[in-house]
Each structure stands twice: as structure tokens, then as C-alpha cells.
Computed example of a mutant assay.
Amino acid sequence: MFDEATHAYPDAEARRHVESLIATVCEAGALAKARFDSDLRLDDKAHGDIVTDVDLACETIIIAGIRALAPTHHIHSEEAGVLDGASDWSWIVDPLDGTHNYVSGIPLFGMIVSLCFRGEPVAAILHDAHREETVHGTRHGPVFLNGAPLPALSPEKPLRSATIGWTQGYAVGDDPTARRVRDRVEANAKRLMATWSPVIETMKVLTGKFGGMVSYDGEFTDLSAARALVPALGGKVARFSRGGEDRRFVVGAAPYVDALLAEIGAVMSD
């Protein structure tokens, strides 16, 4: 998917940018954790999604941090939309991923902040706000969990022994193809888990707790960090689709991705 010759980027600069932003993302996480299980102001979005005043407050913190760090960078944030800049660098921001979990009192939520070079994710920060854990790194590696380097993804067991995450866009609903894909993955893995929090699922993949994850027409933020960091640990990112849809991905340890693609391909060809 990622052609290094075409999309070559300055890795040291990317690392400098994300490392400079970690404290800001953790600040947003601390705010979210402090407000967890408190009274929230809720507003409806499209397709049954919601936004809270905490989403907006976290977004304000993160965008201000990016602007202070790199005022010319383009920003695409889930709530604020597109904030133009004049640079090859851009940021994808989900200031409070897992909002439905958050308002339901389920402690699976956090922040996804991905750095792109000429439109391709090349570095990222993932923050589990409740557990106060942070993963960051660049496509060239290394990738760190709370400052300690993560090992390569090298599973020794078959797909049937792996937990696989599932995420889908709010607009998918009861799409019959999505249902068939989901059922096929579930039948061939140890367990399929839909946490409704891509930040948590991506961190589980990167730390080897999940073998991989499947995204079916997810939101633009959902797999941005995985696309940057999974290859750095020797994992694989692959699209699956017959019509060129941009947001159908399998990511994770390479053997699991290959096995999942084979199973999904059988469903998609029906």
C-alpha cells in the first residue's frame, strides 16, 4: 500500500513532531478521565453518532497544541472538520474516540492523533485515557508504549487462537455484506471483539493482545494510526473491497492478515 519511493518522508522530523505533542494529548486524556462518569452535554450527529462537551474540550486542547507546534500544518479533526494549512504535513485527530462508551460509563476511550506526509499516515499517538497509557512512533519505527519499545508482531499460533477486533462506520447499519464478513471472521478466530473504540483495539494489536482488526467502512480517523504504526512492527495493512472503497482494511500481524483476507475474499466473491 505504501510505496516508500513515492511517499518518502523525513522520519526524524515526523518523530520530533509526535514526541512534541505527547504531553498535549495526555493533557486531553487527563481532562477526559476527570470528567468520566460525570454530567455531560450531548448533541446528536449523523447516523446515530453523538458528540459531548468533553469531545470539544479535548479537541480544543489538541488543536491548540498542533498550532503551537506547527502553525502551517493542515488539520483534519473529527469535530472541527478541515483546518487548512500550507504544508506537506497534516494531522488527523479524533479528540475522544469511543464517545458512546464514554457516555455509557464504559472505560474504553481515548485519543487518536496521526501525522501524515502528503496525505499518507506516517506517525501517530494513541492514548488510552482511562489507563493512562500511550503508544507513539513512526512508520520506520521504533514504536513505544509508555516510553518502552514494543517488539515485532510475530505470532506463533494460528488465526483460530487469535482475538480480532471489529470496527465499522456508523452508517453501515445492517449491511448484509458487512454481516457476512463479520460472521466469517468470527467463525475463524478465537474471538471477535467490537469495543467501539478503535484507539483501544489498535493499541491491543500493537501490543500483541489482539492478532489484528478489521475495519468495515470505518470513520476516517479509525485506522489512521494503525496504518502508520502496524508496519513499523512488521505487521501488515491491507485493503479489501471489490469497488475500491477506501475504508475497508485488515491490519495486524502479517500471518493473521493473510488468513483473514482469504476468508473475507471468499465472502466478498459470493
Rank of each mutant, 00 (worst) to 15 (best):
L153E: 02
S154K: 14
A189T: 06
A178K: 04
A178I: 00
K190F: 11
A189W: 00
A124Q: 08
A148R: 11
G165S: 02
T177Y: 02
E133I: 07
E133A: 14
T163W: 03
V135F: 12
F144A: 10
Q168E: 12
P176V: 09
P155T: 08
P176E: 06
P198N: 06
K157V: 13
A162N: 02
L150I: 11
P158K: 06
H127T: 09
V185E: 01
L126P: 02
N146C: 07
A148H: 10
R180I: 01
I125D: 09
I125T: 03
G141C: 14
S161T: 04
L159P: 06
D183F: 05
V181C: 06
S154R: 15
Y170V: 03
L126H: 02
P151T: 04
G141W: 10
G165W: 00
D175K: 05
W166Y: 04
R131T: 12
F144I: 06
F144C: 11
V172P: 06
W166D: 00
E156H: 13
P151D: 09
A194N: 11
A129W: 03
A171S: 13
V135R: 05
V181W: 01
A162V: 00
L192C: 04
E132G: 12
H140F: 12
P155W: 04
V172R: 09
A171K: 12
I164P: 00
S161D: 15
P142K: 04
N146T: 07
V122R: 09
R131V: 10
A124M: 05
T163P: 00
L153A: 02
R131K: 14
T163N: 04
T134Q: 04
G141F: 12
L145T: 11
A124V: 09
F144L: 15
R180Q: 13
P142M: 09
D175V: 00
V181Q: 02
N188F: 06
H130R: 12
A124L: 10
Q168M: 13
Q168Y: 04
A171F: 11
R184H: 06
H140P: 01
N146S: 09
P142F: 09
V172K: 04
